[in-house]
């Protein structure tokens, strides 16, 4: 049986002053988080980071839904994040996933869990550092483990060039993974109902439906995640 796993991702630059001191903003919290999620925030020893960790999880799940259905409807309170363990654990870099962040005091921590939505359940991995929150979500827990991704921090890249820079980084990684040259890879966002759709991977000018790619950026950070669809048999 053909099988498709879909990815979504999101990141938050904690250096942006507008992302700070939100854990005490009750109006803000009530718009976005269920009472159970607010408890997670209040119980955390990094409450502001937990705010954006939960937010990035919901956003990542929303991206999966939007990619699968084209639906833009998004009521954050109808997306419920559950964490496997409220305690953050140190993140250990893997070969297929890494965080390129220099001067990263405190190291990188990991949260894992799920986001239940009206449309699907997404599985999440959230990385937290002092300066950045990053989430990868996948429609399948097994495939989340095999997703390849990278977070890049480059304050020297302007907003206008950030999109180009992260696409180039993703192209290079996909090319390495597929045994191709980066110039064989294209990343294109087609218009869907007059709006830019999700990024699509082209190999030698032909759309590759087996590679699912997701991109995100905020502030000086950008990130990509991709997955090669696996064939499973029922």
């Amino acid at each position: 049986m053909a099988y498709s796993a879909i990815l979504g991702n999101d990141l938050v630059d904690m250096k942006d002053i507008r992302n700070r001191n939100r854990a005490g903003d009750k109006r803000f919290l009530d718009k976005l988080f269920t009472p159970e999620e607010q408890q997670l925030i209040f119980a955390s020893n990094m409450p502001d980071h937990m705010v954006w960790a939960l937010w990035s999880a919901k956003e990542s799940a929303y991206k999966i839904i939007n990619k699968c259905t084209g639906i833009r409807s998004y009521v954050p309170l109808s997306f419920e994040v559950k964490l496997n363990d409220v305690l953050m654990k140190p993140y250990i870099e893997r070969q297929n996933a890494n965080v390129e962040m220099k001067n990263n005091p405190g190291g990188t921590n990991l949260l894992e869990g799920t986001v239940s939505t009206p449309y699907l359940k997404a599985y999440i991995k959230i990385l937290l550092t002092q300066q950045c929150i990053y989430c990868t979500a996948c429609s399948d827990n097994y495939d989340l483990e095999s997703a390849k991704w990278k977070v890049i921090n480059d304050p020297s890249v302007s907003d206008a060039h950030q999109s180009h820079a992260i696409r180039e980084a993703a192209k290079n990684h996909i090319a390495r993974s597929e045994g191709l040259n980066p110039e064989d890879i294209g990343i294109i966002r087609e218009q869907v109902q007059g709006q830019p759709g999700p990024p699509l991977v082209y190999i030698n000018n032909k759309k590759d439906k087996n590679i699912d790619l997701t991109l995100t950026h905020d502030g000086s950070y950008s990130a990509y995640a991709f997955i090669k669809q696996q064939s499973k048999f029922s």
Binding site: V12, R27, F28, K31, L32, W52, W55, E59, S78, D218
Partner: peptide
Amino acid sequence: NSARFIDILLDLEDAFKIQIND
């Protein structure tokens, strides 16, 4: 930015003295 969209909602509520539900 989608995170800033929530800030826009809050600022619209303040500017027009209204409540915007989900």
